[in-house]
Amino acid sequence: MSLDTTPSAVAAAPVIPKVRRGLPALLIGNPTFAFGVLILAVVFLLAITAGWLFPGDPQDMVGMPLLWPFQDMAYPLGTDSLGRDVASGLVYGARVSLIIGFSAAAIGLAIGTLVGAIGGYYGGIFDNILVRFTELFQTVPPFLLAVVIVAIGEPSLSVMAIAIGIASWPQIARLVRAQFRSLKEQDFVMAARGLGYSNARIIFIEILPNALPPVLVTASVMVAGAILTETGLSFLNMGDPNLVSWGSMIGEGRDQLRTAWFLTALPGLATAITVLALNLIGDGLNEVFNPRMRQR
């Protein structure tokens, strides 16, 4: 072990936190984290109850076109150029954003964890190849890669989730690899080897749980990033044409930017608030898992 004191080296050291405080204590002790959880819970609730709150297709014409918010209380957030209810679109859009955000992050996490764990654990030439492979993916602009993958498949929810997941795994792979490289030298891994456990068991049952905390922090940021990417893709008309999403609403509202800017503003605001909630949660988790930062 060399004594390197650069901040990056310190940050790369394994963080094995002991979370003594439960979730309730965390919610009380950290108001911004609680605020994030609250916002996300509301968005979730709206997404789940969308069909009950706004029965009928959000793409149906229901009222006069281009009503401003609060002009007609039947459509509290106004209507777009085709007379579709903006409030209904926002609530159904929450569904799309949450589904894609969480499933894309799960796909990215799965690929990244697998690549990082195998490379970091086995090391050697295998690790070298995987690192090169990861770097290869990192030099291609992730958004462009997602666009290409959606073009290969079809503009559907699952293809978009896969595309965003594939475009976002390298950062997780790097993180997990660094964790595994330092954790595999620790005594408990030595003990597991001594007991004759298989490599698969050591990787997934012994090391992985210890490597997860910083990955969890990154995961909430990944969900946020996936939602932002989805918004960008649907803004460019690469989303599912049969579903209303925040990005497609921004894209359609853009044509009336000069006259009815609320059509662009509202879905963007919804995206920003949801992503903000996820980032607040990420910051809260980070504070729990990196106790060094807590003292200030």
Partner: peptide, 22 residues
Amino acid sequence: VLIFYSAPGFWLGLMAIVLFSV
């Protein structure tokens, strides 16, 4: 900073068009 971190950049750009151009 948290707002910059959370809002889609292209949307902030569209809003900037509304304010500074329109």
